[in-house]
Nucleic acid binder design. Structure first.
Lengths: 202, 202
DNA sequence: CCCTTATCTGAACAATGTACAGATGATAGA
DNA sequence: TCTATCATCTGTACATTGTTCAGATAAGGG
């Protein structure tokens, strides 16, 4: 029967994916606070306790979703950067600026996702070095900065702290804009200041 | 009787304060997620529904607590800055650096407070200009930057975007460290980069 | 001293996270 | 093809939560 067919899918390991996908939908709409395991189970058409075979509790589901969002962000950034190819200095500069913009756009479009990603649910427990190696978005930043140096757009002297400064400025303005403490227009101004600070030649 | 004495206090307008104070205690210990109105009421020795005469719902109590924490932060920063008096360039530079450090220390000591302050519960709804005028911590930053210019430690050219850059760098690193994406040591490095970017003379 | 008004209580309700005993269906071996 | 095993899911239950509302209680002014 058709009703049994639906259930069969989850016997093949789709429930874990379905849980995250549905959780994503709810968080996207209403944020994390109001996320209900029962609503998710209901939406999927499964009993409230079925989720407990894949996640020990509600928090774990939110963690899993959060970490998958980091992958999504990395995908999005890589897609956008691919639109600006070329080894020229100009292209490298544009890629760097776009990288910041994608971070900001991602957060503005889905503030609830942004909040989840940097909430307690996604606290990093592994070593800092390992975490950054596994963070593809961070690696993209590293490559962008390398490109700037190689194309002669950025001085080697500032390179050492360039990741730190870039991420801090971009994340800081984004976070403050999402929480309503700064205006959207401030983001481009902050990018200007950042490029100036990094000594990026125009 | 003594038990009645306790209740009498709340007839004189102390319950609103007690609610926020007790909520503060719980958030400090366990964060916002697990904050329970019933536990708070129980701790105070009042019925679960008593809170509803002062706050329309749980969210409003969290908002009130969050905004009061901004005042606390401002108080803390002002107290710390008062420890470095004097109109010298050297004093102005030290005050500026200390201002960043107090922001960071506050967040590290009480990460749950920091999270609440920049969560959905404390979203700014008023106009940006008005919000920043009422934000005493922001005003302290403005004054510190003015001092830097007046004492000749900072160039007027970078003054225009100095608040934006300072707050973004300090808030960005702090937020990323609290969420485990950067290491504590990165904060001082970020401050160094910021001072360099602002052209603060050593 | 009473009466109005602010303040708080008690009981109730629906929703939630979570635990656990059992049912159900897939799959591998005979 | 039948059967036994095992992962997967259901049903029920329980404590806790936010929230509502009718009524009790105390305070303060006339």
């Amino acid at each position: 029967m058709t009703t049994a067919r639906v259930r069969d899918q989850y016997h093949h390991g789709d429930l874990e994916v379905a849980l995250i996908t549905t959780a994503r939908k709810f968080v996207k709409k209403n944020g994390l606070e109001s996320l209900s395991l029962r609503q998710i189970a209901n939406e999927i058409g499964v009993s409230p306790s079925a989720a407990y075979h894949y996640f020990p509790d509600r928090n774990s589901l939110l963690s899993a979703l959060g970490f998958s969002l980091f992958e999504e962000l990395a995908d999005y950034q890589e897609r956008e950067l691919a639109k600006v190819p070329g080894a020229s200095a100009r292209a490298a500069r544009e890629r760097f600026r776009n990288l910041g913009r994608t971070y900001f756009d991602w957060a503005i479009r889905e503030p609830h996702f942004f909040n989840l990603m940097f909430s307690d649910f996604c606290l990093i427990e592994s070593s800092m070095d390992q975490a950054r190696e596994e963070n593809r978005a961070y690696q993209t930043l590293v490559h962008c900065l390398d490109d700037l140096v190689e194309t002669g757009s950025m001085d080697k002297k500032v390179r050492a702290s360039a990741e730190l400064l870039s991420w801090s400025v971009v994340h800081g303005t984004t976070s403050l804009i999402v929480s309503g403490h700064l205006a959207s227009e401030d983001f481009e101004r902050a990018l200007d200041s950042l490029e100036l600070a990094l000594g990026i030649r125009k």
